[in-house]
Design a protein around this nucleic acid. Sequence first.
RNA 1: GGGCUCAUAGCUCAGUUGGCUAGAGCGCGUCGCUGAUAACGACGAGGUCCCAGGUUCGAGUCCUGGUGGGCCCA
Length: 1080
Amino acid sequence: MAFEKIDKRPAFPKLEEGVLQFWQETNAFEKLREMNRGNKKWSFLDGPITANNPMGVHHAWGRTYKDVFHRYHAARGHDMRYQNGFDCQGLWIEVEVEKEHGFTNKRDIEKYGIGKFVEECKARARHYAAIQSEQSKRLGYWMDWDNSYYTMSDNNNYSIWHFLKKCHDEGHVYKGKDVMPWCPRCGTGISQMEMNEGYRETDHLSVFVRFPIVDQNGSSPEGKEALLVWTTTPWTLTSNVAAAVKSDMTYVKVQCDGWIYYIGKGNFEAARKQPVEGPIAKTAPSLMSIQAIFKNAGGFEVLGELKGSELVGWSYRGPFDHFEGAAEAKENHRVIAWDHVTESEGSGIVHIAPGCGGDDHRLGREQGLPSVAPLDDHGEFMAGFGELTGRRFVDVASDIAADLKSRDLLVAREKYFHRYPHCWRCKEELVYRLVDEWYINMQWRDRIAVVTKTARWLPSWGLDRELDWLKNMGDWMISKKRYWGLALPIWECDQCGHFDVIGSREELKERAVAGWDQFEGNSPHRPWLDEVRIKCGRCSHDNVPRVKDVGNPWLDASIVPFSTMGYFEDRDYWQKWFPPEFIVEALPGQFRNWFYALLAVSTMMTDKAPFGTLLGHGLVLDDQMEEMHKSRGNAIEFNSAADKFGVDVIRWMFCDHSPERNIAFGPVHIDEVYAKLIRPLWNTYAFFCDYARLDKYDPTEGVLPVDRRTDLDRWILSDLQGLIELADACYSHYDTHTFCRRAQRFVDDLSNWYVRRSRRRFWKSDWSDDKLAAYDTLYEVLTTFCQLIAPIMPFMTESMYQNLVVNQRSDAPASVHHVRFPETDASRADRTLSERMSQFLRVVSMARAARTEAKLKVRQPLAELRVQPGSDGEADALRQFEDHMLEELNVKKLTIDPDVSNMCQVSVRGDMKVLGPKFGKQAGAINAALKEADGTALAGQVEKNLPVPVSVNGTVIELESADVIVEKSYGDDWAAQENMETVVLLDRRITHELKMEGIARDVVRQVQNLRKQADLNIEDRIVLSLESEGEIAEAIQTYDEYIRRETLADSVATSQFEGAVAKIDVTFGRQSLAIGLSKA
RNA sequence: GGGCUCAUAGCUCAGUUGGCUAGAGCGCGUCGCUGAUAACGACGAGGUCCCAGGUUCGAGUCCUGGUGGGCCCA
């Protein structure tokens, strides 16, 4: 079958749709799996994508890598599992379902019904999993889509039960009472991992408050004395228990406005600054120093200094001692010592509310202080806090300030800007609350670190980052007071406090004493599992309920090396596929999320790393390098990008990029890939098909042995071997970046040198070895290159392969993705040849520069190009490729001259910029004298960096070499280019003969243009009329045969004829030419 | 305060165990070429390879210290 004619500028997105259809109709993926089944395996583990929204272009980066390495390993014949995963459980889904219903808090959900709510969460996950599957297929992602795993599956949930029980058996599960960041809207604690997502700049009302001193270690103050305290969260003053100072810090005693204050000395004097950066810092009002505040309040007097340690033990009156809720604190108001107090923030005396802050709570525990916890689940004040009861903590700051003022406790108020944590999902301000949560302690972190070090991290600093996290992380909070998620398999006895962790469904069935019937037949989620009661493992209580909490979603995603690989059902299968050789995910965040959780779970289960190599990649940003956000309107949906640009180009763009850097996504960058790679490659392919079709080239007929092909052929084949070798090394080391760069350079060499230099060989009308060699070579290069980039651009290569291979050979594999990866052929690799060509190309570039310098168009033949080679290799290269130089530069002769210095006149002139300031009025005379002097001799001095003597009006002045400029000249007859040792000289003298030939070439060019305008096919023959006079007529006559051959003219008339389909009048100099042509 | 990381042309970035005369693409300007190529080529403007020391025959590359950005931890 003939080669198809190729559309030069196809709509690639449409082409890709066609290929998708082809794959589907031919079951291409299933056939590939069948071919490789049972072979050596390559094991991959997919990090589940959150099935909560359609994919954005940023999802395509990681998924491109995943597909690329799958395809490469398939081409290596490896058997693979091809399993994609969906992350289904967790708050992010709940939040979206809540939005659909317009729910604002947990009460709404409970009213609606937990069962119904949970079912809708499941449905949402399934819905978006289906959409993402379709989108992934469009990306060309070959996966076993019917076998995707879902983290909400019973299997996955029960697998986590097993893990948690194992943790419990080793004594790592505990219930902790701690102050946690809490989202009052979601009604749940926020783990350390999640916290980091939500820091945002915001402003709060902060206050300076006085705590009136009651007792100073036995004596009472005579007048009004107070501790000065500062806080950015006035609501926490309701729960103040103590005030902390640093023992060795200096404090000042200051009188102001009838009070005597104690304040950190550094704090008192220091200028204060809003701790924010960027635009917000400009709008934020500047902060007054405490000193300035006092000055404004009517002036102050410093009465003395003392150490923090002297303050310790004093007692004071708290700001809200009248609230019943704070009763416990009232007895405990005293000054304590704490190392964390600093001079750089606040007043140097820190208000401590152990029920309202993490550090406060730890300090309170050490010091045996009571905790006052004023807020409920919704962030509202509980009973016992007077008029605040029932109000939300976010709303009360200014009322509290007003109340303090009315009770003479407020010193100052200000707007304070800082970074404050917000809920990463719903953006609500977080609050620190004292709550009960479930934890896995991380005393075994060293065990995880050992395992972590056994994996290969790309980029390599990832390991250090992960180890750093392991070292610093706190215990893993695994509970969440929500609805949709892993139902924690913890049953806690409300009579004796004992808790049991259940490790499997079977175990639960055995232990169940009630509610099993209601549960059976449902998934292990709320509310169904909540029905099941067991008998306490310690006391006699026989109606023990499950704790209501659901689990941390990173548990769901990190059990998958076990749950999805048959750890529980088919241990042999698991043994075969675990550990996966490769995982790849986006870097930001995952060190403390998936990577961490995966390592922790796998360490607990097997003490083995859950991956051999981890590849991390950066973020996808918009073309201004800004993060993409839906709200900002710069997010790009996957579908729209695929429809508009096509996915091959997107895949290449991602693969071409250095993974650890963020990537800018935008039309400009897409176009770059088209311009740099796709268009030249496609055009080379189209060029080949055009001529191969006309010539009826048959690649299945005997291929010409390589040693009978030209140097040019053997060069491109040799470079191709280098590229194969590199491709193999890069793919197997998960480095597409290096490969893509080299592949682009290869396409450039192919298109702009090999094809450009070989064009005429394809145009020849009759078959010869040379022509066959050109076809065989270009065919081999195109088909092989196709295989090399097929993993990255699966669509375009498929289309090329169908035309180049399947249509030609009946025995060819049906898809480009069924073909084994190319092997290097040592007989085709020729390092010397490759090296020579690159040396040669350097000289060609210099010769072109000389052409430009000569201001003579390439159409005009010139007599001679003379080269002084910079090395022996370069001389060899020039001899070897002489013909190419002659043709490319359109010169008659190439002379290799080992020393051209005899053609060169050297002159030395003064550098007036230097001479002027140095010699003043004399400079002109010096310069004139330099011109007179023996340039060669002076230049010799300059080269040796010796003094340059010059005689001016009888006196000899010695110039430094920096004072002069050496100029070389090869005269008017030669255009010169020099670079290091290489010198290229182009004879710019045009003889009458050369001129005639130049005109003939010009005529040909004009005719060719006219053919193009007349829309003729390249093979169409024409009749031509050329009406001219003088030199043009002479040239046409002399080069009659040449003109006819080049333009496919059957006849050339010297006057116009009737019926010309295209005409043009042109002038060369003062002479004119009228051209007319029509189809023969 | 600690950890990791980055810093190369106006922009986006290459630069592989130290061998560099520091490159590419985009953008800008000029000229040229073109029967595969809305392509391409040549030339021009644009660099203290963040700074300072050190190791070395030789440092963009390695080491130390600093400055600035990013991420993380506290």
